[in-house]
Design a protein around this nucleic acid. Structure first.
Length: 431
DNA sequence: TTTTGAGTTGTTCGA
DNA sequence: GTCGAACAACTCAAA
């Protein structure tokens, strides 16, 4: 065992050295800080070898490692079952304190509780912090102390609370950063972790998009996309930095960031949504769940322009425009009557910005089964949506190669599918 | 406790 | 072409 007394900062979904609350606390503590990241086998085992998210995480970690090299330190990379990794870490190092930032997904909460219990049993101090949201857990509640389930009143309360509070000073100076633990790090190759580099890459944030966000956000071909979501997902940007910008520049954008926290607190307070309808009155819907149709939807071969272009954008780039997400999701649930959980799982596999709370919340919204969801009789007309939002077919042609007027036959006729959906939902509710 | 007002993102129909 | 109502009533949040 190495005898140096150290503390550990455990990086998870906060892959940055700046504006990082937990890291700042660690660096302000009594011991030099060893930076740690664990590739969790429980998650990784489900992923393809060239997963784009793993590629991105790896790239960001190697950036962090390089930055820390300047201070003669680095990011210690481990891979395995998280509990086992911690078991071996306490054998290898003289750990005095462990710091990390909160994660709110049910599985993460359980993992963190277990690790905390284990560390405390070894007389290691554990400190954890709110970092990835402005308000967490019970910080925004109704006046009767119950959680909100409707967005608008939640947003109003969020804004009210925000105005009354101050953001913490999360600046990390170079001097503070020099409190890292100096060691000779051997940063592993991606291949050694069992992965290979994906051809799909995360784009940098387009801050310019904030200016015209409200005006352009519905048009998938317009250059008004922020590409922010994967960065918020992995914490390569701080939510506080983005909220400050949004507050100064664009109210619509700020409300999108509030949506993120709305769904996070829904998942936190109602973890059953992971597997069940938020509104159980929809439990009786008989999904058709036709596997061949699902396959066509996944591949972008439904014959509907925006559905297919959207799915192909997802498959080839890991992104999908917000409006197109609504259209593709609505189409799967309503036109094809396929269980939203199938679509949710497919998006989870492909999206660079995949996050349980937002993905689940928005899928349930599209299916009509969620909190504050679209009413079930609101069924997008793919022809009309195309005319409204991609009239010149710029987006369509970008993702459907050789698109022409005699494009693929439609998987189902809109008018027929609409009537079928209305009938199935109605029956499902009555039963 | 009761009442009141409102609810992300739409579509269709008929005047 | 434009506009308002219907869709279908229900639930939530706050007064």
């Amino acid at each position: 065992m190495n005898k140096d007394k150290i503390s550990i900062f455990w990086f998870r979904r906060d892959l940055r050295l700046q504006h990082n609350i937990g890291l700042k606390a660690a660096l302000s503590g009594d011991f030099p800080v060893l930076s740690l990241f664990i590739f969790d086998d429980d998650i990784l085992d489900e992923l393809p070898e060239d997963d784009a998210r793993v590629t991105f995480i790896y790239k960001k970690l190697s950036d962090l490692d390089r930055q820390l090299n300047k201070h003669h330190s680095g990011v210690l990379i481990k891979k395995g079952i998280v509990a086992d990794v911690w078991e071996s870490l306490i054998e290898d190092y003289n750990i005095q304190e462990v710091y990390f930032n909160h994660d709110y997904e049910p599985a993460s909460i359980k993992r963190d509780q277990e690790i905390k219990k284990f560390l405390l049993s070894k007389n290691i101090k554990v400190d954890h912090f709110k970092d990835q949201v402005i308000f967490e857990k019970n910080e925004v509640l109704k006046n009767d102390d119950n959680p909100y389930t409707v967005y608008t009143p939640y947003k109003n309360k969020w804004l009210e609370t925000f105005k009354k509070s101050e953001l913490p000073d999360d600046t990390i100076t170079d001097k503070l950063l020099s409190n890292v633990y100096a060691f000779d790090n051997k940063f592993p190759a991606l291949k050694k972790l069992g992965f290979s580099k994906s051809s799909i890459a995360v784009k940098p944030i387009n801050f310019y998009a904030l200016h015209n966000y409200g005006k352009y956000r519905d048009y998938p071909a317009k250059d008004g996309i922020s590409y922010l979501s994967p960065h918020l997902r992995f914490g390569t940007v701080s939510i506080r930095e983005m909220v400050r910008k949004a507050e100064a520049e664009n109210e619509v954008f700020l409300s999108e960031l509030v949506w993120r926290e709305f769904f996070m607190q829904i998942l936190y307070h109602f973890p059953k949504v992971v597997t069940e309808n938020f509104k159980s009155k929809y439990d009786g819907i008989k999904w058709r769940n036709n596997e061949k149709e699902f396959e066509k939807w996944c591949r972008g071969q439904t014959g509907y322009e925006l559905v297919d272009a959207g799915m192909r954008q997802l498959n080839t780039t890991g992104y999908m425009h917000n409006r197109v997400r609504m259209i593709t999701a609505g189409f799967l649930c309503k036109h094809l009557l396929i269980d939203w959980r199938w679509g949710e799982a497919y998006f989870a596999k492909k999206l660079l910005d995949y996050e349980l709370s937002s993905n689940n919340g928005n899928w349930q919204w599209a299916a009509g089964t969620g909190c504050d969801a679209a009413p079930y009789f609101r069924i997008f007309n793919p022809h009309l949506q195309l005319k409204k939002y991609d009239e010149d077919l710029k987006y369509t042609q970008k993702y459907i190669q050789n698109y022409s007027a005699n494009y693929l036959p439609r998987i189902v006729e809109h008018k027929f599918a609409r009537a079928r959906a209305l009938e199935s939902y109605k029956k499902g509710i009555d039963n």
